[in-house]
Nucleic acid binder design. Structure first.
Lengths: 110, 110
DNA sequence: TACGATGCCTCGTCGTTCTAGGCATCAAGC
DNA sequence: GCTTGATGCCTAGAACGACGAGGCATCGTA
């Protein structure tokens, strides 16, 4: 099967994080797992990429965080999507779609 | 109509350049125009992005260059795709397809 | 004569991902 | 008891590449 690899293109990580959290509040470590699972093992986000990204995103008020306890009783920092975050997710997905369309056009062009 | 905008994601420019040159040898300024035309005005590559990229790509032996004269009699540096460049284009397009597929999966996931 | 288009280039900045580390807790196996 | 791997958080530094801004020359046209 395809290994868990695929370097992310710069600029796609925020979209993935926002999308993962859009399914419900989640802590950092869980975001990595959820992205891996949602992508059917195709995407593996590194911790060294994730935590700085979470900080960045929270600074921009697209996420809020809160320390809580998970189902196994461990402390973890749970992130939730804000209203602005939902808007931003939409923006980033539309931007992705435009780029994908443009690249498709370039590849079809004779 | 959609304006000529759409910031490129880091890592997609090489693919676009290789694809543009794959249609036939072309000089730098012409590559910008050809990408704009192929993408139906959706992509605009900046000169400040292009020329460093061309240098980089030629260093990797995916392109070769040659000074020549264009149809209007002006000197220009024409780039041609090498065999390795054609391979690389294939690699980058497959890589793009994998990423696009993975992101589509993430977006479909419930 | 002046300006825009064509053609090449460089420099510095900025944002983002990654590698490699550090730390703590917990469960399971030896 | 001890070790190991999984879970959980974080940081620092390196590397990379796209971009804006600048510089330069030539040519056609108004």
């Amino acid at each position: 099967m395809s290994q868990v690899k695929a370097d992310l293109l710069q600029g796609t990580l925020d979209m993935l994080i926002l999308r993962a959290v859009s399914l419900g509040p989640l802590h950092g470590y869980g975001i990595i797992q959820r992205i891996r699972q949602m992508s059917e093992e195709m995407l593996n986000v590194e911790q060294g990429s994730l935590y700085p990204a979470l900080y960045r995103i929270e600074q921009r008020d697209w996420l809020t965080s809160e320390w809580d306890t998970n189902e196994t009783g461990r402390r973890a920092k749970f992130y939730s999507l804000t209203r602005a975050g939902r808007r931003q997710l939409k923006i980033e997905e539309e931007s992705w779609d435009r780029l994908a369309l443009a690249i498709a056009k370039v590849r079809q062009a004779t």
